[in-house]
Design a protein around this nucleic acid. Structure first.
Length: 183
DNA sequence: CGCATTTGACCAGCGC
DNA sequence: GCGCTGGTCAAATGCG
């Protein structure tokens, strides 16, 4: 398993992911940690950090290895660099949402760069990268096969630029998913 | 025409 | 050592 650092306690020098656009609201709604209810009717399921443990028992499993695929023999420089980054591994933040849509509009522009079938899951996992120049943030989006209404989004890295859609991000997200209010 | 998505191939780490 | 799996690349394709 890999490091899901605590949401607001990013080790390494990474600043808190305020860059996600809606974190401020998250903070006050204290959604994470209360995800053990199994029969949550709908809504925001939780924010995972250090260790992802999906209540449904499903493997979210982001961890695993690091990134392979960089060893294109042509770009040695690149691969070296990447290898280095690989060791340092950026903090990741994962959260689950109940949503009809896979892609939550968090205000940033993402470009899909890959899709993979993952084990124990009939839904593929999609890989996105922030299109902003110089911003190396990635995210993975995966729907749980055990509960098709749950989408797990994993962010990796921190945005180095402001949100592209300045206003109402969080509200927009709320429109796309229903917030789970802890009992 | 430019940008985003799709998709197969490639690579590396891990478990057996 | 080999096979499996996850993560990424890059060419091809699609769309506005």
């Amino acid at each position: 398993m890999e490091n899901y650092l605590n949401f607001f306690a990013c080790s390494s020098s990474a600043p808190p992911p305020a860059s996600m656009g809606f974190t401020s609201n998250m903070e006050s709604s204290n959604v994470f940690g209360n995800v053990h209810g199994h029969s949550i009717p709908n809504g925001f399921l939780g924010l995972k950090s250090t260790e992802i443990h999906v209540p449904t028992g499903q493997e979210v499993e982001n961890s695993s290895r690091s990134s392979g695929g960089f060893g294109r023999s042509e770009n040695e420089e690149k691969s070296c660099k990447k290898k280095y980054e690989k060791k340092i591994r950026k903090p990741r933040y994962a959260f689950q949402t109940r949503s009809q849509v896979d892609i939550l509009d968090d205000g940033y522009r993402w470009r899909k760069y890959g899709q993979k079938a993952v084990k124990n899951n009939k839904f593929p996992r999609s890989y996105y990268r922030c299109t902003h120049q110089g911003c190396n943030v990635k995210k993975q989006v995966q729907r749980l096969s055990k509960d098709e209404s749950i989408v797990v989004t994993t962010y990796e890295g921190v945005h180095t630029h402001p949100i592209e859609k300045p206003t109402d991000n969080f509200e927009h997200i709320l429109n796309q998913m229903q917030i789970y209010a802890p009992l």
